[in-house]
Each structure stands twice: as C-alpha cells, then as structure tokens.
Amino acid sequence: MPGRILTEPADIRALLDRVRVIAVVGVSTDWKRPSSYVMKYLQSRGYRTVPVNPRAAGQEIWGERVHASLADIPDRFDMVEIFRKSEDVRPIVDEAIRLAQEKSIRAVWMQTGVRHDEAAQKATAAGLDVVMDRCAKIEYGRHHSELAWGGFNTGVISAKRQRVRHA
C-alpha cells in the first residue's frame, strides 16, 4: 500500500502516536542546536531516539550511541527524522526506502525548512508516510497542549478530556 504525504494535523498526530523509535539524521553534538534539543525533548516525551551523524559516529548524544548511517543502527526504528539541508535529503530517503522492510520503518520526517518533493514521492510509492517542513517538537506540543503554554494558536478545538501520561 502506498504511503501518504501528511499535512493534516490529525494525520500527523496519529503518526506521532504510532511511532516509538526515531532515527535522527544530522543531529548535532552541540547542545545549543535545535537538532540536539529536539532529540532531547522527544526522549523526554517517551520516544527512543537514535542519533545518526557520520562525523560523530561512536560518540554519545543524550545517552545514545551515534551511528554513521541508518544501516549501521542495529535495532529496528519506526521513523527517520532528517535535520539536513533539502539538497542532502535524497540519499537519506533512498537508504530509508532500502531498509524499510528490515528495520520496519513507516515514515520519513523532514524538519522545518527541509523539503524534497521528489524524494517524498519516491518514499510514498515505497509505502512510507512523509512529513515535510515541520518540527516534531512543535507538532507533538500542538497536540498535547504544550505549544499553547507559550501563547501559540494550536488550532486545536476540543471539549474532550485529555489523558494524562504518567512518567
């Protein structure tokens, strides 16, 4: 079954609800960079995040060993999150498509400012869901009220009581 390019908030929320292990490609060893603290934030919200960065392979970021490529990750992962320039996206998506079955990958997420329509088409044809030009931290925050704490318009209107996740 082909995947989809997800733009509707409800679809993005459903993806974040399904995913548990995220490979973070291009994550920086500098704690001040967004890639670093988005990874840390996702960890704090219960996701396992596995860093991928060839220049930092073998080091640790937020307690996780850094791998040189997606193929080097020994465990399965649900989603590939990309913190690289748009022009560098294609080979990463190709690798994700190649590994999709073996690693049980279901989605590719390109961070804010990153988009590659051709690679996205290829990924959906291969059965992967794709999110482009969005921040996983903001999208998680939008659906769990945290984004609203900063005064932002989440667009979420609901009279339903939210379940409280206990750590």
Binding site: A148, V156, I157, R161, Q162
Partner: peptide
Amino acid sequence: IHAGARPEPI
C-alpha cells in the same frame, strides 16, 4: 468559547 480552553486534564 472553546479556543485555548480544553478541560483541565487532571
């Protein structure tokens, strides 16, 4: 009436 104000979760 509703924007921003979901039931208090606790």
